Simulated scan of single mutants.
Amino acid sequence: MSGKPVGTADLVGQPLLATEPGCAYRDLFERELTSLAPVDFMEFGTIEATKRAAAAGLGISPPPEVTVAAELAEGSLVRLRWEPPFTIRTQLAWRAGKRLPAHARLFVAQARRLVAEEA
């Protein structure tokens, strides 16, 4: 983490970057900020585009940590010391008895690995 702790009020008035509305983490972030003041986001169609905009210095963004791990490690992005007052939960589901294709099995295996690492 970089710098001093940041409160939600410190984020209001900053240039904000996010994916389009409807993304759970963006919606929760926006709800938290708009409880203090109206905010505007520069919107991007993908997390990758949002990350690149943040790396270019266009603003701050609330991406899922797993999507920015490499950029944080290499230093092209820095983590603000802001603790979100919400939690995001993700679930995976598929039809019982259905054999998943190889790419889906790989995705599930990677998701399980990441969850185990976090625990």
Rank of each mutant, 00 (worst) to 15 (best):
R81S: 10
I60R: 00
T34K: 06
V115R: 15
A73V: 03
V66I: 08
F44H: 15
S61R: 01
G59A: 03
G22H: 11
E30A: 14
C23A: 13
A96Q: 15
V115W: 13
E118I: 03
R52G: 07
I88W: 01
L77Q: 00
A102V: 13
A104G: 02
R112D: 09
L36Q: 13
E48D: 14
T67L: 09
A93T: 13
P84Y: 11
G97M: 03
G3A: 11
R52S: 13
L100I: 12
T67G: 00
A104S: 00
R112S: 07
G59N: 02
V68E: 00
R81A: 14
W94S: 08
V6N: 02
G13Y: 11
K98P: 01
V115S: 14
P85E: 14
A24L: 01
K4P: 08
I88F: 02
F86K: 02
L11I: 07
L17D: 03
A109M: 10
E48C: 00
R26V: 13
S76P: 02
R52K: 14
R81M: 05
D40Y: 04
P84F: 10
L17T: 05
A9M: 02
R95K: 15
E20L: 15
L106Y: 03
W94T: 08
G97R: 00
E32N: 09
P62C: 06
D10G: 07
L72H: 10
V39A: 04
R95T: 14
G57Y: 07
P21L: 07
E74D: 15
S35C: 03
E74A: 02
P63L: 03
L77P: 00
A53T: 12
L80P: 06
P63G: 09
Q14C: 06
L16M: 04
R79N: 09
V12C: 01
L17A: 03
A18I: 04
F86C: 05
K51V: 15
R79C: 11
T67W: 08
S2M: 12
R26H: 14
R79A: 15
H103P: 06
A109T: 14
T34G: 02
P63H: 09
L11Q: 04
T34S: 11
V68M: 00
A55Y: 08
V6E: 06
K4W: 01
D27H: 09
